[in-house]
Design a protein around this nucleic acid. Structure first.
Length: 265
DNA sequence: ATGACTTATACGATAAGA
């Protein structure tokens, strides 16, 4: 154990799919100034590494690591504490999508994921999604969940169960709700990764994403697909998880909202 | 209703998201 790790622990960690950091940067900076998470994982930055706004985050006290590309995907970890040993790929595959970032922060392994969308069950993108989840599982096998604190958070593009979708009957076996996807997610749970929102709020319906179209937010037709998972040493310390629905009312909002987990020190 | 918005790329139309 490093001496510093006992002095400062992660007490507040958040995940937010920002749907273009270029468009959302002012909102992200406002949110950080207001909420002050110790660690924030962003997805869909859609920003090449050379254009990442490093200085904007440094100037408000955040270290950053990022893995981006033009137009699509892109992930970043922001931290008030030092970020050690960042990894931008999860294995030796040829996959060039920037969807993964893993680093050590105050003795916690923080893993940021942007799981592929999959499009529909007939698409090659669906096979890619399932393969990607399988590869993530293999990456996670290096950890001992019962003993090690690991935070795995991001946009999973899977509604874990019927409570996590506005229309469980209409969406059954559709994309985000299909059995193969849910099996992939359950296989992460079975390794010891715990869905913290569902642990703390077993019966509450709360969504983290709403379609831009059809007034879906106003009608609360959404999904809970942005998740914070943690291994038992961290899950035991979790006090609450909140989903910031209010931020979806901003001008030019992301279609996702932040999910934030709180831990005892 | 293979739609509806929003973003990126590139400057109009298409791809992609979820």
């Amino acid at each position: 154990m490093e001496p510093d790790e006992t002095l400062h622990t992660i007490e507040k960690a958040a995940t937010w799919n920002v749907n273009s950091l270029k468009v959302r940067l002012p909102q992200v900076l406002d949110w950080l100034a207001r909420e002050k998470p110790d660690v924030a994982c962003l997805q869909e930055t859609k920003t090449p590494d050379g254009q990442f706004p490093v200085q904007a985050f440094h100037s408000i006290g955040y270290e950053v690591v990022f893995a981006g590309q033009p137009a699509y995907n892109g992930v970043a970890i922001l931290s008030k504490f030092p970020i050690e040993s960042p990894e931008t790929v999860m294995d030796r595959s040829e996959d060039d999508h920037r969807r993964f970032l893993s680093a050590r922060i105050q003795g916690v392994q923080v893993i940021n994921v942007y799981v592929p969308n999959g499009q529909d069950l007939d698409s090659p993108k669906f096979s890619y999604k399932l393969e990607w989840l399988d590869r993530l599982g293999h990456y996670l096998d290096r950890f001992t969940p019962e003993r090690e604190p690991v935070l795995l958070m991001g946009d999973f593009n899977i509604a874990p169960g019927d409570l996590d979708t506005w229309d469980p009957d209409g969406t059954r076996n559709q994309i985000f709700h299909s059995e193969p996807e849910r099996y992939g997610l359950r296989s992460l749970f079975s390794k010891g990764f715990i869905d913290l929102y569902r642990k703390i709020h077993p019966d509450t319906q709360a969504f983290s994403w709403w379609d831009y179209r059809m007034g879906s937010f106003h009608r609360n037709r959404g999904l809970r697909i942005d998740l914070v998972l943690a291994t038992p040493p961290l899950a035991k310390r979790c006090l609450d998880v909140t989903i910031d629905r209010q931020i979806r009312k901003n001008d030019r909002p992301s279609d996702h909202v932040p999910v934030t987990a709180f831990f005892t020190s």
